[in-house]
Simulated scan of single mutants.
Amino acid sequence: MPNEHPEIQGGGSLILAWQIKNKEVLVIGGGEVAAGRIVNLLNADAKVTVVCPRAGLNEEVAYRVERKQVTHIDRVFLPLDLEPQKNVAMVLTAIDDPDASSRIWKYCKKLKVPANIADVPPECDFYFGSVHRDGPLQIMVSTNGNGPRLAAAIRRQIGDMLPEGTGESIKKVGELRRKLRRVAPGKSTRDINKRMGWMSRVCDSWSTDDFNAMDETDMQALVEYYESGRVPSFEDIRIKPQDDVVWEFDGSFGWM
């Protein structure tokens, strides 16, 4: 009998969307690699502290420091930077000193703080991938540390294939989901499954262009179909009731 279950392919990573909003992240180093890491962290609303002598900051990192987008500690890393009361959730190193990087990694392992040591895959608890970003849409391509440049090329190819306005469509879907929860606020498993099932059918039936063109009135008209279980087309909800027509007869039909 053929196996109907997925085959296991070992050697991969568990790809997650790590929520670090308002969490403390320590970046050690201030060069080009650190600059890229900082952008990713700030886009995820993390609280970033950069440990690096001021002379080692490149133009972009110095700009982040000047704008107070990050906190800067003007020296090399010291163990006190990871004192428990600082609640550091993650450490990223991007320095040109392999021995120092390894010592930092071992110290992080001792404290059970997840760490990424730039360009040293065996000393990484997690990897950065190449990310396509369009509003709320994020698509990450990871080569598990084998080929970052190739990951970037693949990411660009994927981005080029996506329909224009995909990110805006996803925003509209989020707004629609929130509106639906207000209209049908039930919290039982049955209620949740019904909402999810109906939303799935809407997403399967409507195109990116449909969601882009949807306005507040269209959204309200759409959720009114929820109780019936029907999923209308975009054209259906755009059909407006005809205004009442008042006929005026002037006798031209030959009526008396």
Rank of each mutant, 00 (worst) to 15 (best):
W18Q: 07
K23N: 09
A94H: 09
E60R: 15
R156Q: 14
Q9E: 11
V246H: 13
A44D: 08
A115C: 15
A35Q: 06
I38K: 00
N58S: 02
A115F: 12
R64N: 13
V173Y: 01
I15M: 15
T93M: 13
D210W: 01
A35I: 07
V33W: 03
E59A: 15
S13L: 14
E123Q: 13
H72R: 01
G10I: 14
R238I: 04
N87K: 15
Q85V: 14
C124E: 04
H132Y: 15
V245P: 00
V231W: 00
L150W: 11
Y226F: 15
I73M: 03
V88W: 10
V113I: 15
I28V: 13
G36S: 06
Y226P: 00
R149W: 11
D218T: 00
V245A: 09
F128N: 10
G10V: 14
N193S: 12
R149A: 15
Y127L: 14
R182Q: 14
V76H: 14
N58R: 04
P53F: 04
L26Y: 02
S130D: 04
P136V: 05
D45A: 11
D74A: 04
R238T: 09
A118E: 07
G29L: 07
E24W: 03
L41A: 03
S228P: 01
G11C: 09
K68C: 12
I73A: 04
